[in-house]
Amino acid sequence: MGQTVSAQGSANQAMVDKYRNNFLREVEANVEEGDWVKMCMQCGVCSGSCPLGNAWEHPPQELFMMIRAGQREEVLRSESMWMCTSCYNCIVRCPRGLPITHIMHGLANYANRLGLAPKMSPTRRFAKIFWDNISTTGRVNETKLSIRLYFMDGFVKGLKTAFAMRKVGLGMLLTRRLNPFALFAPGGIKNKRQLQQILKRAYEIEDQRKGFQ
C-alpha cells in the first residue's frame, strides 16, 4: 500500500506484458492462493452460501470462470471481491476445498496494488482506514476507526451516520467496548518503530515474491 499511483500503473502494464493473454497464470503467480482457481468445478455452492451474495455482481465461481476466460479488466476492476466479509461459509462448503475467502482477498489486494481496484468502493475504503488505523499503533483504536469511517464522506453525512448508529454506540460505551478517551490517548503497542520495520520488510518480501519492484 505504499506505492504511488504511477508506480501502480507501470506495475499493471508490466503484468499485462508479462502474462499476455494468460490471466489465469497471472493470478496463479500473483494472487494469494491464486493457484487454487483452476480447481473450481463450477458447482456454485460458494455463491449460494455467501450471506452477502446479493451484493456481488460476480459471485466467486463466476470470477473464477472469468479469470479462466481471460477477462482481466472486468475481474480486477470488479467490486465483487471487495464484498467478502470473511464469514468462511464458502471455504467450509466448497467441495473442492478452495480457500475462496483468501482468494477473494488476494484478488482485492492484487487489484489494489495494480491500482485497478474501484476507487470509491466503501469496503475498499474501510479496509484502507482499518489498515491505517491498526498499522500506525499496532492496536485497533475503535473510537478513531468509527469516527474516520463515519466521516469519510463528509461532515454532514458523518453526523447523520453517527446519529443513526447512536444506540449501538451508546451500548458499546456502556459495555466499555468503546472508550471516548481513546480519541486523545495515543495507545498502541510499546515498540511502534519495530512494528513499522517489520511491516516494511514484509512488504519488501511480498513485492519481491510477487515480482513488484
Partner: peptide, 22 residues
C-alpha cells in the same frame, strides 16, 4: 463432465495440472 466413480480423482488431477474445463 462425466467421470463417474473414482474418475472424479482423475478430473481433479487434471485440474491440478492446469487442464482447463469449459
Amino acid at each position: 463432465l462425466r467421470a463417474p466413480g473414482n474418475g472424479e480423482d482423475f478430473y481433479r488431477a487434471a485440474q491440478l495440472k492446469g487442464v482447463a474445463f469449459t
